[in-house]
Design a protein around this nucleic acid. Structure first.
Lengths: 341, 341
DNA sequence: ACATTGATCCGAAACGTTTCGGATGTTCGC
DNA sequence: GCGAACATCCGAAACGTTTCGGATCAATGT
């Protein structure tokens, strides 16, 4: 049975108040008294009852993260790396990470209301912003601390603290790289249309083509689902309609892995016949067969920084920077193939 | 400002008690009264204060999982898949998942004491059992519900509910497979010595050799760290000392990926020159270059089943099965190479 | 009219911890 | 001896929800 302050008070002869103050390091407790109390607490294996403490101090020392759950999408290394960054940074600050996996939609919003409205967490981390993101609207309306990996769509004011990748320039660099290899028929598999970052990548592709003196072809562009299955099916769709394509830019690595699968099943060689790029540089990009060209996203570090920002907000401290845009380095691997005529 | 029961009581004219009972569905509240109260609760966006409720009912509806954190080891897809299985099953039961990432050792044990002793969680999931696992000893001593992915070491009584892979037979199947391809010099990279499952895999390797009429060579066996870096360095160690090796069994996929890196850097072809196998069948095994032979572990499903078992324990329900050993299917991919003379 | 039953509502206490605002005792200075 | 200052300890109330054990009222049966 778990010991309580009351048990230590009984065993030590001091009041519950003194026991609490002694364990909390209050300086109006005699040193010997403190040591005696701490000894008994240790013997009894005392741990403070956290719901009681949380209720009293109105703080849980917990960061909330609700993970979108589609179909094992969590095996998506983007989220696992983010989660590790968040978790490690939280642990360093003596915070825990509370997770709920929810299919986006009403269940997800219920989970936000429960966690935030129920004072279960001190603040939230949000990732993968959507257009008119209801999560952000709810948190702003509740005036509760939160930080975001992502911005609103181009042209909209992002009125919250965020860390995002400059994916506009990242995709532009991919297109420039493929153009420099001689590719003139470059396809694009975008994220879902409702994602806030989709249009940044779309614009990066357009401007990359323009800079390379290539025409934008809408029929070379499809919307995907950020999953390997979406990469696979959309690569097939693109290649069925546009067999002249010699390169495909997928807007994340997981879709790129699906593109590679589709190419291989069609007897096309990745790189040699069709160049492929992903985005994010998840570990699987490097292990892939062949290794995948991508744009590096420091996912783990983003997770860490988000937590540090969030805890500063929770503590009512000013942030050094409230909106951070990180550049992403192009990582060229074998899926680019070589120079072509 | 978050509405409380008291606010609803004031606005409705009923007592706090009646408001609480109405929202909880007690049948001694008039239907009209209930509807009136629920309308006000909805208008005010009421959410129950969860620390208060948890303190009162002595239940948090939370599963705890402390993730070992070495050096981004969480990017290990074993844990991310387990976590997703755990998280999805928990969500289905209206449970949250509380995570702390901790380096194994005293900080980790402090986190267990805080979560369990502080009534932060209703039960714990433990993975990757160690010899004399202090986590298990603590939870047994506390008489708190927990479930384990893994058993104690061979010959020891596992006196707790678990789900484990039959890795003895899994590794034996790998060895048999390599032997059937004609390999006679088969190396082994084990998990760390302090892992409870290491000796099952070691025994599977020995018995697989014996069944194939091959001698056990202790100098073909090293202990690794379950990380890619350990696979890499131990493959180099083995091949420096035993250049005649034509196959290497790594006891998890991540180490196998490191083996493959080491081979490739030595100008050796994976499969053709040295066959490689991992264990677990994480997604990266399939994407690897070349695709990795492995033994399938249904990690996500294990996570789900563990949570169902745990919640049954929390609810004082009998388990259908308290100790489950799952077979793992051999998945042959290109890293095996072909028949050799 | 009185007692019983049923419907409906509610006060009080519990959960365990924290901390405000004293209360008490001792010592020292005047 | 008295008052002030200091060291040390502590009672009470707060946090928000739940639920036990009534309390009250109206209707019905005797």
């Amino acid at each position: 049975m778990q010991a309580k302050l009351k048990d230590i008070a009984q065993k030590s002869g001091y009041s519950i108040t003194t026991v609490s103050r002694a364990l909390a390091g209050y300086n109006d407790v005699n040193q010997q008294t403190r040591e005696h109390i701490m000894q008994i607490a240790s013997e009894l294996g005392y741990q403070p009852n956290l719901p009681a403490r949380q209720l009293r101090i109105q703080r849980t020392h917990t960061v909330g993260l609700i993970i979108p759950s589609y179909d094992h999408v969590f095996s998506n290394e983007f989220f696992s790396q983010l989660l590790l960054g968040v978790g490690d940074a939280a642990s360093l600050e003596r915070y825990d990470l509370l997770i709920s996996t929810q299919v986006p939609g009403e269940d997800e919003m219920d989970a936000y209301r429960r966690m935030v409205g129920g004072n279960r967490v001190d603040g939230m981390v949000i990732a993968r912003t959507r257009q008119n993101d209801p999560r952000i609207e709810y948190l702003k309306q509740q005036k509760r601390p939160f930080v975001v990996n992502g911005r609103r769509a181009p042209g909209e004011v992002s009125d919250f603290p965020y860390i995002d990748m400059d994916s506009y320039n990242g995709i532009q660099a991919v297109v420039a790289h493929f153009a420099s290899l001689g590719h003139q028929q470059i396809g694009l598999i975008l994220p879902p249309e409702n994602m806030a970052f989709t249009e940044y990548r779309h614009q990066g592709y357009r401007d990359g083509l323009r800079a390379a003196g290539l025409d934008y072809r809408p029929d070379y562009v499809v919307y995907g689902d950020l999953l390997r299955t979406g990469g696979y099916s959309n690569a097939n769709l693109l290649l069925d309609r546009q067999p002249q394509l010699t390169a495909i830019v997928a807007c994340n690595d997981l879709m790129a892995l699906g593109v590679m699968r589709a190419l291989q099943e069609r007897g096309l060689r990745v790189g040699a016949d069709v160049a492929v790029s992903g985005y994010d540089d998840i570990p699987a990009a490097e292990y892939a067969n062949p290794p995948l060209t991508t744009v590096h996203t420091p996912i783990y570090e983003i997770g860490q920084r988000l937590v540090r920002m969030l805890i500063a907000l929770i503590d009512d401290q000013a942030l050094d920077e409230t909106q951070i845009l990180l550049p992403g380095a192009l990582i060229v691997r074998e899926s680019s193939g070589g120079q072509r005529g």
